[in-house]
Every structure is written in structure tokens, then in C-alpha cells.
């Protein structure tokens, strides 16, 4: 018996056996097959950009990167605050210095510590 002949005999035997299966067993087999087919997910095509997004999301989700980004944002916010504060202070200084220097009150009167005391004493007298 060669191989081909053996395969033919197996097929014939299976076909004959199939004819002998009870109707209720056939119905159960059919229902099981349909349930398996409906449960099978359709294969989806994944675009390359989605893959990149998935990669980024995966990495962003990792705690290490999240902590690093939070630390970076914190330092950046502090640096911006310092820059803003510096600008604000310089604006305040230029405001008061230009007013002080262009006023007709003598600068020495503001610098001389003794004058302040003398002024208080002279007002008390």
C-alpha cells in the first residue's frame, strides 16, 4: 500500500464515519464552530505612525521617564520664575532710580544718615 492509496482510504473512512454521526451531535459541532468563528478577532492593519505612537506611549508610561519629565518641568518653571523675578526687580529699580535721580531733592540728603536723625530731632524741638 503506497502512501497515496493510504491517504485515499483514510479519507474514504472519514467520509463514511461523517455520514454516521447523529444529527444532534452534528448540530452541536456546527454551533461550536460558529461560536469559535465569531470569537475570532479580525486581523487589523497597523499603520507605521500608530506603531511610533505606541512606542512613545509605552515609554511615556514608564515611571522613570515621567519622573524625569516632571523634574525637568519643575526646574524649568523655577528658572522661568527667577527670570521673571529678575526682570521685575530691574524694572522696579529703574523706576525708583530714575525718579530719585531726576527729582530736585539732593541725593546727599537721602544718603546722609545723620540728616535723618537731625531732621527728626529738629521736628521734635
Amino acid at each position: 500500500m503506497n502512501e497515496l492509496h493510504f491517504a485515499f482510504r483514510v479519507r474514504q473512512h472519514l467520509n463514511q464515519s461523517l455520514q454516521q454521526i447523529d444529527d444532534d451531535k452534528l448540530a452541536r459541532l456546527k454551533a461550536a464552530r460558529e461560536a469559535a468563528l465569531s470569537a475570532q478577532k479580525a486581523p487589523a492593519t497597523v499603520p507605521s505612525l500608530a506603531s511610533a505612537g505606541h512606542y512613545l506611549r509605552f515609554n511615556f508610561d514608564s515611571r522613570g521617564l515621567r519622573f524625569s519629565l516632571a523634574a525637568l518641568a519643575l526646574v524649568l518653571a523655577a528658572a522661568l520664575y527667577v527670570h521673571w523675578q529678575g526682570d521685575k526687580l530691574i524694572a522696579e529699580l529703574s523706576d525708583i532710580d530714575s525718579a530719585l535721580l531726576s527729582d530736585d531733592v539732593p541725593m546727599e540728603a537721602l544718603v546722609d544718615k545723620d540728616f535723618n536723625e537731625w531732621l527728626k530731632n529738629s521736628q521734635e524741638r
Binding site: R63, S68, A70, A71, L72, V75, A78, A79
Partner: peptide, 16 residues
């Protein structure tokens, strides 16, 4: 990781 954040927090506080 938390050390990184703590370090950044200290740095930010110092700068601020």
C-alpha cells in the same frame, strides 16, 4: 526616580 524628583524640587526651591 523619586530621588530625581526630590533633587529637582530642591534645585527649584533654591533657585526660587
Amino acid at each position: 526616580m523619586a530621588k530625581k524628583l526630590a533633587g529637582a524640587l530642591i534645585a527649584a526651591l533654591c533657585i526660587g
